[in-house]
């Protein structure tokens, strides 16, 4: 069944929190809390608590980066030093550990950073994640609550959202 969307804009974060609370406790059919998206100009840990678990798995990519990057780098550097044209320089060992550690350290950071950035884009589904309803004011000073639900539940949701002094409710079945 095709789902419908509705977006309510709030000027005040407390009102938005109340609206979320009521949505959560409503327990209506054709609607899941995972389908609620809050759009806001700043991060809002207090609203996220109401939304339920939203897992972040960027750190696993970072872990992968910091494990694989330096090991590959170290082996690559050491085997480059030991490749056919190997040369003794300044009486030092051909595969000297302190310089290789310096480079390995830099590779550790570089691969960690690159994997984190990559993971961020994967996790945010960027570029090009366009949700159906967007209002430019959520990047300015409004809090938006976007709900995706079965079309028949939308009026009820709109009613709940409307109870908490929204500035505007938009969507397919908006008033």
């Amino acid at each position: 069944m095709k789902k419908s969307h509705t977006l309510a804009l709030y000027a005040d974060m407390d009102e938005a929190a109340n609206a979320l609370k009521e949505l959560k406790s409503s327990g209506m059919s054709g609607f899941r809390m995972e389908d609620v998206v809050v759009k806001s100009p700043i991060d809002h840990p207090e609203l996220s608590e109401l939304l339920g678990p939203r897992p972040v798995y960027i750190q696993w990519f970072t872990l992968l980066g910091v494990l694989l990057g330096p090991t590959t780098g170290l082996v690559l550097i050491a085997s480059a030093q030991a490749s056919f044209i190997y040369q003794v320089r300044g009486g030092r060992p051909v595969v000297p550990l302190p310089p290789d550690m310096v480079l390995t350290y830099e590779l550790f950071i570089l691969s960690g950073v690159l994997m984190t950035v990559l993971a961020t884009f994967v996790a945010m589904k960027l570029p090009g994640n366009r949700s159906p309803l967007y209002n430019a004011s959520v990047s300015e000073d409004k809090i938006g609550i976007l709900v995706k639900a079965d079309p028949q539940s939308i009026p009820q949701i709109n009613e709940i959202l409307g109870r908490h002094k929204p500035l505007e409710i938009m969507g397919d079945q908006a008033r």
Partner: peptide, 22 residues
């Protein structure tokens, strides 16, 4: 989606590790 990319990265890494300084 994330898991798939994660796996791809691991595979690519193992593959590229075959070429050491050649």
């Amino acid at each position: 989606y994330g898991k798939r990319i994660f796996l791809w990265i691991v595979l690519f890494w193992i593959g590229s590790a075959q070429v050491f300084a050649e």
